[in-house]
Amino acid sequence: MSACALPMRAVLPTGGDQVVVVISGTANEPRPAVTDAVRAVLRDTANSGNVSQQGSGKSSVVLVSAADGGDQRSIVLTPRRADGSLEHGLSRPALIDRNFTSAVDAIGATVAHKSGLDLLAGIADAVRGVPAGTFVVQSSGLSTSGAFDLRQVGWAADPATIAGRLAAAGQVPRLDGWRVLFAGLGSVAGTQPPPSPAPRPAGRVLAGDLSSGPRRCPRERAERSLPPTDDDQFAEIRCCSKCPRCCGSLTRKFEQCARGCSAR
């Protein structure tokens, strides 16, 4: 248990824009690092106009919680004066910086207090009762308990099959309307034995089913003389106008996909 762990606090949405951050924070993961994309989201939310003039009304907040429910914290991002009124003057940038730093510090200090990781349950708990907004999952994705226990699922499992079983069992969190960002997938602390075989990192089964951003088609990358990336090899390849054969492919390798596109 980390000495700088945050005390448990009730997380209460305030009606303004919400950013929800869930962190696995296990002992075999590095300290959570706030990516540039998440930093941009926090600053945009701090500058949101979906707030009231007085502090007793709506404010933009970030809700930070550990996946095991141990640490929970709500941080107001909206820049407000000591009397609660909205700051529009010269102090606004400094107040935003202060609130932003508080949010980053809270994310970095959030740790797990229980053994094992049930990331699906942590995601479901983090968004329960919160209006849809931006959801950040800061985790290696290496669940070791619950419905998505990778020790039982195995690295060679078919992603579509596992996702279908989880959905049929009602174990996939409902994130309708949420914008979902993943950070730290596959990132672990210390030396870890390489999984073999690994047609696709199993942690990305979850990411592929909860997020829906388009990915660059491998044929397009080849035409632009770009080298294949880890995403090209393992992540779900979605359609583009040049690559109908790539539609819905989950495990197709870069070279295979490029040949398939060229053969049409």
Score class of each variant (00 low, 15 high):
P199L: 01
F100I: 00
V104I: 02
G129C: 06
C257V: 02
S143W: 05
G25Q: 02
S74T: 06
A157W: 01
S241V: 05
F148C: 07
G55T: 01
G164P: 14
C247W: 07
L86P: 05
P131D: 07
Q138N: 13
A37T: 01
V38W: 01
S143I: 05
L175E: 07
P214V: 15
P13N: 11
E236F: 12
A126M: 03
R264C: 14
A132C: 06
L6Y: 00
R224L: 13
G57M: 14
G208E: 08
A169E: 14
G164W: 05
G213C: 10
R221Y: 09
C217I: 00
R259V: 04
S212G: 04
P197D: 04
P218N: 13
M8Y: 13
V180N: 03
L166F: 10
P195R: 15
H88E: 14
F254C: 04
W178D: 00
H113I: 15
Q72H: 11
P244C: 00
R221S: 13
V22F: 02
V188H: 09
V180A: 01
V22T: 06
S212I: 09
T191L: 11
S65R: 14
R165F: 06
V19S: 08
Q192L: 04
D17I: 12
V130T: 02
G184Q: 05
E87Q: 03
A169P: 00
A156D: 13
D149S: 10
R39G: 09
R174M: 08
G170D: 06
R92F: 01
D232S: 05
R81Y: 13
N99L: 02
F135W: 04
A10Q: 12
I162A: 08
E255G: 06
S115K: 06
A66M: 07
A112M: 13
S65F: 10
H113T: 11
T161C: 09
L86R: 05
W178G: 02
P131K: 15
P199Q: 03
A222H: 11
S143T: 10
A3Q: 09
L6C: 01
G184T: 07
S48V: 04
I23T: 07
A94M: 11
A169N: 11
F100C: 03
A94D: 07
C261M: 09
G55Q: 03
A160L: 14
S115L: 10
T161M: 07
W155F: 14
G184D: 14
S140V: 01
L119Y: 09
T101Y: 12
G122M: 03
P193N: 00
V111E: 13
V153D: 11
A183L: 07
I107K: 02
G55A: 10
A163P: 15
W155Q: 14
V19Q: 09
V172K: 03
T251G: 07
S52D: 13
G177E: 00
K242L: 05
A263I: 07
R43V: 01
R204K: 11
T251Q: 11
G203P: 15
